[in-house]
Computed example of a mutant assay.
Amino acid sequence: MKPEALLHPTPAGLYCPPGDFYIDPVAPVGRAIITHGHADHARAGHGAVLATPETLAIMAVRYGEMFTEKRQPIAYGEVVEVNGVTVWLVPAGHVLGSAQAVVEHKGTRIVTTGDYKRRRDPTCAQFEPVPCDVLISEATFGLPVFVHPPTDGEARKLIASTEQFPERAHLVGAYALGKAQRLICHLREEGYDKPIFIHGAMKKLCDLYEELGVPLGPLEPATIEKGKGEKDRFAGEIVVCPPAAIQSTWARRFPDPLPAFASGWMRVRQRAKQRGVELPIIMSDHADWNELTDTVEEVDPSELWVTHGREDALVRWAELQGRKAKALHLVGYEDENE
């Protein structure tokens, strides 16, 4: 069958007519396949949700009583039939529980990557390429300028800064789901065994990662009670917090706070300068340009469909390689949830 008859974009998201389900819909629908737990992909309000057990657990923590959907957990590689359409999930390497959705019907196979990356991440399963007729790829960092450095070096850079500036609290902005836990794990791998302080907004998800088998080491709450002389104990320490908290009154409670930010966007110096970031940590949970193009070449699909991000650049690259490609122009997704 033609790929567009199996899966195509609609205002609510990618829709599969023969299966009557959506992938990462941006509006409430009857049945949704969710690739991962970030809020721009995993919204509440659907009739039924199919996802990995980890993604369902993340959604339950984030939405609480709002998450009333019928839930169908499936493990990586487990094959199910949805109204006659074959569906299975494979690791995307983005965050814990993240998956690519593989949809197959009448001899046509489409793989939707969701958000993904190729480099090793101690907090989640490694990306697995799947041969297919159509690859639907994200393109958050779909420009050649975005080539992320080795992650271990970025973790060592942060540790070295705490040693160079032992009088300053290092406030590191990191998204609460995935980025914060990955940053912590990479710091542990580089030998940082001191307690890491976390903003209260991080606690539930860090606790969940621990429950799901991802050890984070000693964590302590980043709280300072006014008038109790606790400020100095944060000198030279690492404090992980939501990016927005760095510019808040909360941040000013710490001793000479040094603002840092863990993001792929820190490759662009102007972005770091605009946010007042002194220590840019180039660490992304999305594929960089080389990972995007290498994935297309490895999967070798008959068609490449590109969504949310720098769509036109990746489409143009594919066309120059002699590949059939198009941009889907889906709306409702953020560049890096930051």
Rank of each mutant, 00 (worst) to 15 (best):
I159C: 15
P129Y: 10
D121Q: 07
G107C: 08
V172W: 08
V90W: 03
S98W: 05
V85W: 12
S98L: 11
S137L: 06
V82L: 15
G142E: 02
Q181H: 13
Q164C: 13
L89W: 11
F127G: 05
T86S: 07
A155D: 07
A174Q: 11
L187N: 01
V80N: 14
K117T: 00
T113N: 02
E210N: 08
T140P: 07
T162D: 09
P129D: 00
I110M: 03
I110D: 05
P195M: 15
P215T: 03
T151N: 07
H94C: 01
V80P: 11
V90Q: 10
V80S: 13
L208Y: 05
I159P: 15
L89M: 09
L89I: 01
V147A: 05
I198P: 00
D133F: 09
R119E: 03
K106A: 14
Y209Q: 09
L208D: 04
R168D: 05
V90F: 04
A101Q: 07
V85M: 04
H186S: 02
F146D: 04
P91A: 12
I110G: 08
V111D: 09
A92Y: 04
Y116S: 04
G173D: 11
E210D: 05
G173R: 09
H148A: 12
P131H: 07
V82G: 08
V85Y: 09
Y116D: 04
D152W: 13
A139S: 13
I110Y: 02
L205R: 04
G178C: 14
R168H: 02
I184S: 06
K106W: 02
P131L: 03
I159F: 15
T108I: 15
L158M: 13
V111P: 12
H186I: 12
H170G: 02
Y116F: 14
Y209F: 14
R168W: 06
H94I: 02
F146S: 06
R156D: 03
A139V: 12
V82P: 06
K194G: 08
A174N: 11
Q126A: 15
A174L: 10
K203W: 15
A125K: 09
K157S: 08
V111E: 12
T86K: 11
L158W: 04
M202V: 08
T151K: 14
L183W: 07
G114L: 05
D133L: 05
L158F: 13
I159K: 15
D193P: 00
A169E: 02
I136C: 01
G142R: 01
L89H: 09
C124S: 06
Q181T: 10
T113R: 04
L177T: 11
L96D: 10
G93V: 10
A176I: 10
A201T: 13
P149W: 08
L158V: 07
Y116T: 03
L171R: 14
P150H: 00
